[in-house]
Design a protein around this nucleic acid. Sequence first.
DNA 1: AAATATAATATGCGATATCATATAAAACGA
DNA 2: TCGTTTTATATGATATCGCATATTATATTT
Lengths: 157, 157
Amino acid sequence: MDADLKEIEAHEKEPGFVDGYLLYLLASASHLASGQFHEELRGAGIRVPEWRVLACLRDDDGQMVTQLARFALMEQSHLTKTIDQMTDRGLVTRRSDEVDRRRVRIFLSDKGRELANGLVSQAKAHEDRLVRQLGASDIAQIKSFLSHMVETLENNE
Amino acid sequence: MDADLKEIEAHEKEPGFVDGYLLYLLASASHLASGQFHEELRGAGIRVPEWRVLACLRDDDGQMVTQLARFALMEQSHLTKTIDQMTDRGLVTRRSDEVDRRRVRIFLSDKGRELANGLVSQAKAHEDRLVRQLGASDIAQIKSFLSHMVETLENNE
DNA sequence: AAATATAATATGCGATATCATATAAAACGA
DNA sequence: TCGTTTTATATGATATCGCATATTATATTT
């Protein structure tokens, strides 16, 4: 029996495209790793887009909708709806910009900030566990590559 | 005027959590980079989940639904509906497993395979451009880290 | 200053995604 | 073998998402 047949029997095939495809690797790493934390969020009754908004506002409160949407990796009209819900839940407030009244700026409420702080602590703890689990010594390098990638892509749309 | 005030005026704030958070970096790198290719898909009238199914089946045809859903990073019931559509469009066919008739195996049609091959070529071309744009010499290293990450996370759910 | 163009956000609607569960087949235990 | 449990996929209801566009405010042009 030759090697080719053997491979077919073992259902191994040629290496395959997907497993070495950068976008797939990024997507699955992100999917799997974030999936873990999203479980925690679920337990806390927080939806993923809400968490993103909370975290982004905690870093930079009072952003306008368009800007926040890009930062939080979601589409503008979807963010608008998410903000509606979060407003109802008393997590954020809208305030229209004094200078340009087309703009709507989003602010954390006290309750929202408190929640955000707690979740960020959880996120940090999760990241620590994850990095340890990966046994990765070169995380700083990876992060710096990813940052570079994000920066490059943000400037070239 | 002291440094703190200066920073506040320039709206720079402290470094912020999100920008250095591994899961955020992964998500945004993935979001931005894949976003580029998804534009191409849109132009070709292909939806993202369809592309993923095509690419995964091209690497390993005849997968069962559950397995394929994991590989294609989507939820089982969603995949079932995607398969429905793709079947209607003549891209894939269902065949129930001979041995275990609960299982449904999905196969590319000739048309589906042809489409998949074309899209994979596009994906490769896009990846080449992307890597060049990033000016990244150490892509192999990054890929190997991401692979390691995926493997680790897949085994620890 | 009126008319036109551009920009920021919101809205309506159709498509997509997700959850819970139904259905159906196989495996397991008494 | 019959009843129970587990596994695989499908279905239905609900929520989310995203596109196209409406609405409102500002900028620009004449």
